[in-house]
């Protein structure tokens, strides 16, 4: 055993320090500007699904509607319920949003370093050898935003919402993680760009179709979307954990929700749809790669919105029994079968 401890994870930085700072800012900026885009996209799409135009008054074709929404929220009075726990009440939405945005740094937008200002730059925030674990870590921290926010509000509706959130987020995270074991075993790495590169022959959605299904469903529950949007449950719990939030703090939760939506799409695209890869051996120039990733992300976001437009939501106990009795055994089985096949074919 050597005296210097081995690093926990390899972090493949090769950019100069100033480029790392620039990258941080750019990724933060892109993450933030995708929120209004996703918001508008969802509202427009929902409008079309529901036989109405959707927002079309603010700006050309309603494009400034999200800006108007956010401006309205941010300029509103910030208030706290008397029974709330002040500092937790303020901290929780921040926690939710920061955790959501931080995962964005993990999405690899291109495999090839691009030449920017004469320095080669990898189009991702962080390519760690434990990328997937970081993703799950941040998604767990995001759950604290929900939990603490609901609990510190001092309202019964928020409390019930937070209780549901605790159970739902924890139980679905298990299935979500297990569903990815197949991929990790096949690719032999936890690095996200490594996983994408491994899909150059065939996207993981084909051999890992069960895993993809479980991951998608569990992700819906993780990011609190229909049919699993029981944290909010607007019909019974008013707005669940964020009932007592208004103004800018509500906007933070709102932003976090849409970052989650985009992240769900980006993660699915990265893990199962081959990231920046295109099928049939098409090899476009490097600047196309981020567009490919965004297009695949938009595809998944469309699917999620479509589900929201069509399905009712499940009941809380049904959600739990589905998670533990259907998804978890299925995910375990998927991991087992993949392991057996890998050993037999000896890859």
């Amino acid at each position: 055993m050597s005296l210097t401890p081995a690093p926990i994870a390899e972090v493949g930085f090769y950019e100069p320090w100033w480029m790392q700072i620039v990258k941080t800012l750019v990724i933060f900026g892109i993450g933030f500007s995708l929120v209004p885009l996703a918001l508008l996209y969802e509202r427009k799409l929902l409008g079309r699904f529901q036989n109405r135009p959707g927002p079309n008054r603010v700006g050309p074709f309603g494009t400034l509607q999200p800006m108007a929404d956010i401006f309205k929220l941010v300029t509103k009075e910030q208030f706290k319920p008397r029974g709330s726990i002040g500092w937790l009440f303020i901290l929780s939405p921040l926690l939710a949003m920061v955790a959501a945005l931080a995962t964005f740094a993990l999405v690899p937008f291109s495999g090839r370093p691009q030449d920017i200002f004469g320095t080669p730059v990898g189009l991702y925030g962080l390519d760690s050898s434990i990328g997937l674990l970081i993703f799950f870590a941040f998604s767990s921290i995001g759950a604290y935003g929900v939990l603490l926010g609901g609990w510190s509000s001092g309202s019964k509706y928020s409390f019930l919402g937070a209780m549901r959130g605790a159970a739902q987020l924890i139980s679905y995270e298990v299935s979500q993680g297990l569903a990815l074991l197949g991929i990790v075993m096949t690719a032999g790495t936890l690095s996200l760009s490594g996983i994408v590169e491994h899909q150059s022959g065939m996207w993981f959605i084909l051999p890992q179709v069960v895993g993809a299904f479980i991951f998608f469903v569990a992700t819906l529950a993780e990011i609190n979307r229909t049919p699993f949007d029981l944290l909010e449950a607007d019909s019974e719990l008013v707005a669940g954990y964020m009932t007592e939030y208004g103004g800018g703090r509500f906007a933070l939760y709102y932003v976090a929700e849409y970052v989650h939506l985009v992240m769900a799409g980006a993660m699915f695209a990265t893990l199962f749809l081959g990231g920046w890869q295109l099928p049939f051996g098409i090899d476009p120039p490097g600047w196309i790669d981020p567009i490919v990733v965004l297009a695949k992300t938009a595809l998944i976001v469309t699917l999620i919105v479509w589900i929201r437009a069509s399905l009712p939501k499940v009941r809380y106990d049904q959600l739990m029994s589905f998670g533990w009795k259907v998804l978890l055994p299925l995910a375990t089985l998927n991991a087992l079968v993949t392991a057996v096949i890998l050993v037999v074919t000896d890859k």
Binding site: F49, N51, R52, S235, R308, S310, P312
Partner: peptide, 16 residues
């Protein structure tokens, strides 16, 4: 009713 169950679109169809 369907809105209460979480199916949001049927509301618009019914109101059409």
């Amino acid at each position: 009713t369907m809105l209460d169950l979480g199916a949001i679109s049927i509301f618009w169809y019914a109101f059409r």
